[in-house]
Design a protein around this nucleic acid. Structure first.
Lengths: 254, 254
DNA sequence: CGGCTGCTTGATTACGCTCAAGATTAGTGG
DNA sequence: CCACTAATCTTGAGCGTAATCAAGCAGCCG
């Protein structure tokens, strides 16, 4: 008989142990035996299509979600009702951590492309974490990392010029793609220019102009959604300092 | 004999059960019995003076800290070496959550005034959390709340005008002081204008001008560090929408 | 093929920054 | 307690970056 610790929905098996995201996702630092217990509580959700909501603000939080493939955007509504994109999530990343405190999702999560996720019922995860120290620790670590990266983004928004923001954004994507075994030089932006600008606290027009300028300056080759990083070093410089970009005309970046 | 679950350092007893911050701090949602176990691992630190570091970036993280009295500012160094203030922490708030993932503090924590903190050795806290479900849950909640409030700040930095930022900042302080039993209308800013401007992603001069304008418009009465909120409703309006402030000259807020 | 949405480009505006100087406060030592 | 210094804060003038407004272009859907 089929082992029922491997749930088989929609004709696809899933198992953390064989998952390529093992090193990035929850299982990291958990023994094989403990992994089985974790696998037993995880459900596989039907794949989401572009634009589908994984959850909406106000939805009660029953589970965390780990992205398996595809990508997801999370966004909050500010007091005055406008959207603020709070993050883009790649395979191996955990969604819904901000909902634990209230038991209700403060954010929306929407698929940017065809996306599949693992659903991890939170109560059972909590219970398991109490019994498996390595799992508890890993959850603390993941949440801590989230806080750290939020602080990083705060710094970006508070202190950096528009070109530094976009450069840092591209480098972050590059690095995350690299960790997942994809190219660090060339990748597809699954989100719209609008999403990017929203996330970075800029106007769409500014982001569009920046892509053009980065391309003119030989930092990137951009073809619609496809981005090729041509000069990683200079991109790092642009991301680090403020407007150290070097436009061909000699005038200071803007 | 004195119960040795109440540690007595520097002549001061401490006990979570009798602490006025009970409802805000870790103990919330933990039974009396479990509280004793928590109290046993918490150390009391000698009070910090204004400017003292609780920890510095790069310090290894051995403990979390709960503010008991006073206030603390946390700040990170961005790639290009400038300071970014990431938060101001009032009594009952937990510090050091961003250090769990690496075991190293990415931020500095500095006392803004004479401040006392509880030191909570993290390894022992983790171990305890594994045995006390309510404690584990409360820790997840606290970290989740931190993520949520970071997202809120991201929205502030990405979308709001300068006056909305300052208004939101003051309202946040007001609400937090209120929860601690202090006045919501009148309080002291323990941080410098520089710290505020840094935190809000503005120039010092802008913050200074905003205080002046808020006062001219009858929103606040400001006397150096002392702030009195005169019109809470309009301050909320300013914080919510962008530049809905109504300067006497009739020109739109800027 | 037509209508739509998303993206790009241009012109102009404005918000908040920078630079600069002066005022007030806090800190220090006689 | 007061004088002196240093730091913080306030105010003003001018500028620059990115937003806004406006139009045209390209890709994508039915």
């Amino acid at each position: 008989m089929p082992p029922n610790n491997i749930i088989d929905l929609h004709g696809l098996k899933q198992a953390c142990s064989s998952c390529s995201l093992h090193d990035l996702c929850i299982p990291m630092g958990v023994s094989d035996q403990e992994l089985e217990a974790l696998e037993r509580i995880i459900n596989r959700r039907r794949p989401l299509h572009r634009g589908d909501y994984l959850y909406r603000p106000g939805d009660s939080m029953e589970a965390l979600y780990a992205v398996r493939s595809g990508s997801v955007k999370t966004s909050a509504l500010s007091d005055d009702g406008q959207e603020q994109v709070t993050g883009f999530h790649l395979p191996g990343e955990l969604l819904g951590l901000d909902a634990i405190s209230d038991g209700t999702h403060p954010c929306a999560a929407r698929a940017l492309e065809t996306t599949s996720v693992c659903e991890i019922p939170f109560e059972r995860l909590e219970e398991l974490a109490g019994r498996i120290p390595g799992l508890q620790r890993q959850l603390f670590r993941i949440m801590s990392r989230e806080i750290q990266s939020d602080e990083h983004l705060m710094t970006l928004l508070a202190k950096k010029s528009s070109d530094a923001r976009l450069a840092a954004f591209l480098l972050s994507l590059s690095s995350r793609f690299g960790k997942r075994g994809f190219s660090r030089q060339e990748f597809n932006l699954t989100m719209s220019r609008n999403d990017i600008s929203n996330y970075l606290g800029l106007a769409v027009e500014t982001v569009s102009r920046l892509f053009t300028r980065f391309q003119e300056n030989g930092l990137l080759a951009v073809d619609r959604k496809l981005v090729k990083i041509l000069d990683m070093d200079r991109l790092h410089q642009v991301a680090g300092a403020q407007a150290v970009d070097e436009p061909r005309s000699g005038k200071k970046g803007g």
